[in-house]
């Protein structure tokens, strides 16, 4: 019996969401009175032994070059095999892009019940019940997993990473890797941009900004805060901003520490995508905008005046 945490990497670097999954998985192991181990696929330039600081004693690595690209079918077979070899009864993923591709397949291979999008530690007082977000963040469901082996994928930004001291033993695993049926031919990363789902701060704009030519004030603010940029659905639909920036029920769901909404009225569908944010700031000239009801802080005022001032004040704060 143990907890196995899948650690996701991209171009040799471990993703932030995986540190959350590690912290979470170690806590689950503590609850169950067992040990937590990590699993990394492919070649990694980051120091794997240092993952011990999240509380794992062992990091298994299947270092096969064909695992540097994601083929969910190939990944699932390797992860399920590693889980079986290490006697894992719980397998933890981040519910990020890789987790969404792989966790469900692993669950089938292990005939394990899956809770996808978990946001809290399991309640083991009566069975094994995991809370997850449903209705795109409008509510939570407590889901009982009844199978012997359990798979959990953890919503990014829903569990705080705790790093302490410690080093882990790195254990090379030799597991046969199938030839991939998915061949990645190109990768286009928007350089210099903070990925929306991993961002601590998100600055988002709506129709109140009147046109794509006015986005400069928002970009300046985002730059000053090291924030990712996002937009409402009408803005994405009008192609003022790229569609991957659209947050809301039918777009990306985010849960940053700080969400700043500029010129967004706060339709119920938009709120569903952002209401797990820890702190919400709304800037809107309409005091009746429904978004104020969901906000922690607000300014009723003209974005074109308020936003540049806000950028200036943040500059001042950082200079202190």
């Amino acid at each position: 019996m143990s907890v196995l945490i899948f650690v996701d990497q991209s171009e040799g670097h471990i993703k932030k969401a995986s540190f959350e999954a590690l912290t979470y998985g170690v806590k689950v192991a503590e609850q169950l009175g067992t040990t937590a181990e990590a699993l990394v696929l492919g070649s990694v330039s980051d120091d794997l032994a240092s993952l011990g600081k999240y509380g794992v004693k062992k990091v298994h690595q299947v270092n096969n070059a064909s695992l540097n690209q994601l083929d969910a079918q190939v990944y699932a077979k390797v992860i399920a095999e590693a889980a079986t070899q290490s006697g894992a009864t719980v397998v933890v993923f981040s519910h990020n892009q890789t987790g969404k591709a792989v966790a469900a397949r692993v669950a089938v291979r292990l005939k394990a019940g899956l809770v996808a999008g978990a946001c809290a530690l399991p309640d083991t007082s009566n069975g094994f019940v995991v809370r997850k977000t449903v209705f795109s963040g409008k509510a939570f469901a407590n889901v009982s997993i009844t199978s012997a082996v359990k798979v959990i994928s953890l919503n990014p930004n829903s569990y705080t990473t705790i790093a302490g001291e410690g080093t882990a033993e790195v254990n090379p695993l030799s597991i046969a890797v199938d030839a991939p049926k998915v061949k990645v031919t190109a990768v286009n990363k928007v350089s210099g941009e903070v990925p929306l789902t991993e961002a601590e701060i998100v600055v988002s704009g709506g129709r109140g900004l009147k046109g794509p030519e006015n986005w400069g004030i928002l970009l300046d603010l985002a730059k000053e805060l090291g924030a990712a940029t996002a937009c409402s659905r009408p803005v994405g639909d009008a192609h003022w901003r790229p569609h991957h920036e659209h947050v809301g029920q039918t777009g990306v769901q985010v849960a940053p520490n700080l969400y700043i909404a500029i010129g967004i009225s706060g339709a119920i569908q938009h709120l569903a995508g952002v209401n797990r944010s820890k702190v919400i700031v709304v800037i809107n000239k309409d005091p009746e905008a429904p978004f104020f009801k969901a906000a922690d802080y607000g300014i009723v005022g003209d974005a074109f005046e308020v936003v540049p001032k806000l950028t200036e004040e943040i500059k001042k704060l950082k200079a202190k």
Binding site: K111, A112, K293, I299
Partner: peptide, 25 residues
């Protein structure tokens, strides 16, 4: 392999703190 035991609504926000547009600081 799973079953929903119960649902919960997220806790309500405490209410918005409004700041004057002339006092962004």
């Amino acid at each position: 392999l799973t079953a929903i035991v119960s649902f919960e609504m997220p806790p309500a926000k405490a209410g918005v703190k409004l700041v004057s547009p002339d006092n962004v600081a």
